[in-house]
Design a binder for these strands. Structure first.
Length: 198
DNA sequence: CCCTGATTCGC
DNA sequence: GCGAATCAGG
């Protein structure tokens, strides 16, 4: 299949929405995720807010692999314009407000009567994630302990001393013991941004 | 082993 | 331009 205009449109749209290459490929049909990624690159729309997948800070390996001869690369072009990325205010400890180098004004004066800006609490779970969990727990499979497998979310719900106790049981995220929603509340402390220069 | 995107390179 | 093969990482 070829990259017709509307197929490219779909690609652009989905990629912009943060869909993975494989999802896009699946949607389009007739192409592999490699094809999608290749096209994405050719179109020049590369970086975006990625969640799941890859990231390669490219560790230059000294050892040459016989199979993959490294091709001498040209000086990296300077990506001058960073695309402003919208980001959820996760649990990132906010860096202190930049202190102006004014010798005397030691503290910032906050105008009286003005509502204070929301202070990100260090141990807060994003409302997004919580909302997701609530949704999930309604549609959870509610499996029992014995039904747990390596592919079922092991997030417990309810009081084990009660009959109203079950495990989420949805499909786990790779490697993790929980489904996506529960992973996002279980593992909060994560640096959210990784440099993606190659 | 599942997945992610990035890169290379023959076509 | 295309995308499979490969790479590198979560």
């Amino acid at each position: 299949m070829s990259w017709t205009d509307d197929r490219v449109d779909v690609l652009k749209k989905m990629w912009g929405e943060g869909q993975s290459a494989s999802q896009i490929a699946k949607e389009l049909g007739g192409v592999t995720r490699n094809a999608v990624i290749g096209k994405v690159h050719r179109l020049g729309l590369s970086n975006r807010a990625t969640s799941g997948g890859a990231s390669k800070p490219t560790t230059p390996k000294a050892d040459a692999k016989p199979k993959a001869p490294a091709k001498p690369k040209e000086p990296p072009k300077v990506a001058s314009t960073e695309i402003a990325e919208i980001q959820e205010p996760r649990t990132e400890s906010a860096s202190p407000a930049p202190q102006p180098k004014v010798p005397f004004a030691r503290r910032q004066i906050i105008p009286a009567g003005q509502p204070l800006p929301p202070q990100p609490s260090a141990n807060e779970i994003s409302p997004e994630a919580l909302r997701k969990v609530n949704e999930v727990e309604k549609s959870a499979k509610k499996i029992s302990l014995m039904e747990l497998t390596e592919k079922t979310c092991k997030w417990p719900v309810g009081d084990p001393a009660t009959e109203q106790f079950w495990f989420c049981g949805l499909a786990v995220q790779q490697g993790k013991p929980y489904c996506e929603a529960h992973v996002s509340v279980a593992f909060q402390p994560m640096s959210s941004r990784r440099d993606r220069r190659r």
